[in-house]
Amino acid sequence: MSTEPIFQLTVSPDFTPAHISGWYIFNTWLQRNLNVRAHCELYDDFESQRQAIRDDRVDLIYANPFDAAMLVREKNFTAIAKAIGVTDECVIAVAAESSIQHLEDLKPGARLAKTDDPDINLIGMIMLESVDLNDDSVEPVVVDSYVLVAKALLRGTADIGFFLKDSCDEFSGAIRKQLRPLVHSQIGDIQHILLASPRLVAHSASLRHALAEMPNNPQGNSVLESLGFMGWQLLEQEDTEFMIDMIDTLKAK
């Protein structure tokens, strides 16, 4: 029986559904290129993924920036790379026929549909802060996916909804027509990052090399296509520390 470790790859639960298979394909690519055994585990929600991190079951994670602080500062994960041109932006939208035209039209008690996606919820609440709304003055309607956020708006069970912009972009034309964006963030500095655990550190140099080379070979290109990425930009640890500092400023009350 092999004693080789089986590394666990996981992905922030807010990945877009269209790219689920892409992460399994990436896992296969990872095993071939690093010559390691790896298993792709996708968690249904952030809390169960965080528990896996706390239990030291995760070795490579495409992480939500909100969780990067815990991974880097408490679990000693190392920043490896980020997807080129992909940033986490939040759209606040209403149903197309809603009487709400501007954020300023929102009143305390507004019903807010959202998922458990921590960075999008953080960015969304910062945008609402400019009209004096906060966690205590909105009524949350928490659902499992961005499609369900859209449904809550269309059924009238919520007044406004928070969306990850990339998820909105993948909605069908029919759904998009029934929604109306009020405002969207343009931050640019907050994004998911690929982080490696201390157990994977011996492979991090070869992983970085393989990721950088992905666009230069047909096999790598095909994997990138299935993930919806153009390529990877390698990160220095300080790049990630900077983003963690930014998130910390946004979380501070």
Binding site: L103, I126, M127, S130, V183, H184, S185, Q186, I187, D189, F242, M246, L250
Partner: peptide, 11 residues
Amino acid sequence: PYPDGKLIVSR
């Protein structure tokens, strides 16, 4: 006016 949706960041 401060633009909606933006953050000003410096170090």
